[in-house]
Structure formats: C-alpha cells, structure tokens
Amino acid sequence: MTVINPVAVEDAIREVSGRIANGVMVCDTRYRAFLAADRAYDAAFARAYMAYTGAAHERRYAAELETAAEREARDVADAAYRYADRQAKALENELRALQSVGASMRAMYATAGVGER
C-alpha cells in the first residue's frame, strides 16, 4: 500500500505541470511538421497532376500513385501530432485527478481530530 501525503501530492502536481508545459512545445513542433508535410504533399500532387500527359480522367490516379511517399510522410506526421495531443490531454486529466486528491486530503486534514474529547 502506498502512503500518500500532501508533500507527495504537491510533488506529483508539480511534475505533471512540468510535463504539460513541455508537451505544449512537443505538440507545436509536431503540428508544424504535419503542416509542412501537408503542404509538400499538396504541391507534389499538383505537380504530378499537371505533368501527366495521358487522358484527363487518369490524371488524379496518376498523381496519387506518383505522390504516395509524400502522402505517407504527411500521414505519419499527422499520427505523431495526434499522439502528442492525446498525451497532452491525458496529462491534463492526470493533473485534475491529482488536484482532486489534494483537495480531499486538505479536507481530511482540516477535519482530523474535530469532535474528539
């Protein structure tokens, strides 16, 4: 059984708060990478579409085949950003839970010994 005390709760809150602050930069970096990969995919697709010399109805499919690597890079960047975002939300929930534990503990310490004679 783990004994929890107010100092341990404060330390955990401080640690999670620091991880949330770091997570902001991680999310920003990953989102910027996604945007860059998305722009690169769009540009490559447009170039491939315009460069295709076959039938007009085949242009889209030819461009899709030609830009598969750019699309994969965009999808990987999107997945990385979404993962970082979910992690950030999980940390926020963890912080709220720790704050709730801290509030319960303060209430418990405030009422300790009340009514005893």
Rank of each mutant, 00 (worst) to 15 (best):
E64C: 10
L65T: 13
A55S: 13
A68G: 09
R39C: 09
A63Q: 04
Y49D: 11
A79P: 03
A68F: 12
F34W: 12
E58S: 10
R47Q: 10
A56S: 09
A48C: 08
A40K: 06
E72C: 04
F34G: 02
A55W: 08
A79H: 08
G54I: 05
R60I: 00
R71N: 00
Y49C: 11
A56C: 04
A79K: 11
A36D: 12
D75S: 04
A40Y: 02
A63K: 03
D42V: 13
Y41H: 15
H57E: 11
E66Q: 14
H57Q: 09
A55C: 12
R59F: 06
A80Q: 12
A73L: 02
A63G: 05
T53G: 10
G54E: 04
A44Y: 01
Y41I: 06
A69W: 07
E72V: 07
Y41P: 03
A51V: 11
A77K: 01
A73Y: 00
E72I: 05
E70V: 02
Y52H: 09
H57S: 10
Y61H: 05
D78R: 07
D38H: 07
L35P: 01
A68I: 11
A40N: 12
A68E: 15
Y49L: 15
Y61C: 00
L35N: 07
H57D: 11
L65Q: 14
A48N: 08
A68W: 10
R74N: 00
A77W: 01
F45D: 04
D78K: 07
A44C: 02
E72M: 07
E64H: 13
A55H: 13
Y49Q: 12
A40S: 09
Y61P: 00
T53W: 04
L35H: 04
A62L: 06
A36K: 08
E66M: 13
A40I: 02
A69M: 13
G54S: 05
R59T: 04
L35T: 05
R74T: 00
R47V: 07
R47T: 06
A73F: 00
E58Y: 04
A55Q: 14
A43S: 15
D42P: 07
E72T: 11
D42G: 14
E58L: 13
E66K: 13
T53L: 13
H57P: 03
A68H: 12
D38R: 13
D78I: 02
A62D: 01
H57C: 08
R82T: 00
D75H: 01
A36F: 01
A48D: 07
Y81A: 02
R82M: 05
A48T: 06
D75Y: 01
A63H: 04
G54N: 05
F45C: 06
A63T: 04
D75C: 01
A79L: 10
A36E: 12
A77R: 02
A56G: 03
E72G: 03
Y49W: 14
